[in-house]
C-alpha cells in the first residue's frame, strides 16, 4: 500500500474533502520518469497540470510504520468498481493520527483513505470515483524493493525520525514513516510577544511558538499531519547550534 504508487501506472478521478471543502481531481502516474500528473477539476476552467513526485519504494519504511501503528486488515467495500481491503492503522501512542485505508485488492493502491484525529473525528478523506490501470511495473516484488531514498536519522520524539535537515536555513523534517512534520525556525517578527498558537486545516496542523533568546527572539513553526502534542514536543526539541544533545 505504502509503495503502490511506485508499483503501478494508473489514471483516475479522485474526490478529496476536508474542512468542509471538496476538490475533484484527475490523477495519473506514468511508467516513464518518476512523477505523476494532477489536475484540479473544479478549481477553474481548463485547469493546468501539476506534477507530483513518485516516491521510491522502501521495505524499511513499511517496517518503521508497523513499529508505531497497529495494523488491522479486513474485507473492504467496492470503490471505483474494484474490490478493496480495509487497512486500519491505529497509533500505538497518542503522538500520531489514525488512518483508514481502502486498498485495491489486486494492486494494493490506496483507493480511499480517511484520517481521524485522536477523538475519532474525520479530518480529511479522499476516494477514487474511477480508476484505470495501465501496467504494473515488473520489478515490484518485495525482493526487489530498495531503500534508495529512505534513510532515517536520529529519533526526535518517540517514533519520529529526522529524515531531512538544513540547519543553516532552520529547516527540519521528521517522519514516522507515514506522517510527516516540518519544523521551521526563523527570527521572531518585530513586536511579537512570546507565546504560542495553532490552527488546523484538514489533517494539517500548524503550530507556532515564539521564544525570547539572546539574539532577540525566534519563531518556531511546525507543520504536519500530527496531533497538537506532537507539534509541541517537536518545538521543544529545537536547540541552538552549539548545545550538546
Amino acid at each position: 500500500m505504502l509503495q503502490a504508487s511506485s508499483d503501478v501506472t494508473f489514471e483516475g478521478t479522485v474526490l478529496f474533502e476536508r474542512s468542509g471543502s471538496r476538490q475533484f481531481l484527475t490523477v495519473a502516474s506514468t511508467a516513464e520518469g518518476n512523477r505523476g500528473e494532477l489536475r484540479r477539476m473544479n478549481a477553474g476552467a481548463n485547469p493546468r497540470s501539476e506534477f507530483w513526485p513518485i516516491p521510491s519504494r522502501s521495505l524499511t519504511r513499511i517496517c518503521h510504520v508497523l513499529e508505531v501503528y497497529v495494523p488491522r486488515l479486513e474485507s473492504g467495500r467496492i470503490i471505483a468498481g474494484r474490490s478493496t481491503q480495509r487497512l486500519t492503522l491505529r497509533p500505538r501512542d497518542t503522538l500520531r493520527l489514525t488512518h483508514l485505508v481502502d486498498m485495491d485488492q489486486s494492486t494494493g493502491l490506496p483507493l480511499a483513505m480517511i484520517t481521524l484525529d485522536l477523538d475519532g473525528q474525520m479530518l480529511e478523506r479522499y476516494e477514487y470515483a474511477a480508476i484505470e490501470y495501465e501496467s504494473v511495473i515488473p520489478d515490484a516484488s518485495v525482493g526487489n524493493v530498495v531503500d534508495a531514498e529512505y534513510k532515517r536519522g536520529r529519533n526526535i520524539v518517540p517514533g519520529y525520525f529526522l529524515i531531512s535537515e538544513n540547519p543553516d536555513r532552520g529547516l527540519f523534517v521528521v517522519s514516522d514513516g507515514l506522517a510527516t512534520a516540518s519544523v521551521f525556525v526563523e527570527p521572531l517578527p518585530a513586536g511579537a510577544p512570546v507565546g504560542e498558537g495553532a490552527i488546523i486545516e484538514g489533517a494539517t496542523l500548524t503550530y507556532t511558538r515564539g521564544v525570547r533568546s539572546g539574539s532577540g527572539g525566534l519563531l518556531i513553526s511546525v507543520l504536519g499531519e500530527v496531533p497538537f502534542v506532537t507539534a509541541r514536543l517537536l518545538a521543544d526539541a529545537v536547540r541552538p547550534p552549539l548545545e550538546d544533545s
Binding site: 500505538r92 535537515e165 526539541a237 529545537v238
Partner: peptide, 24 residues
C-alpha cells in the same frame, strides 16, 4: 510554560527526553 530553549537561528533538533509514548 513554553520552554525558551533556543538562542539563535539555525541550530538543531534533538531528541526530547522523557517524551515516552503511552497507550492511546
Amino acid at each position: 510554560a513554553p520552554a525558551p530553549v533556543v538562542s539563535e537561528l539555525g541550530g538543531a533538533v534533538v531528541p526530547v527526553l522523557g517524551a515516552q509514548p503511552v497507550q492511546a
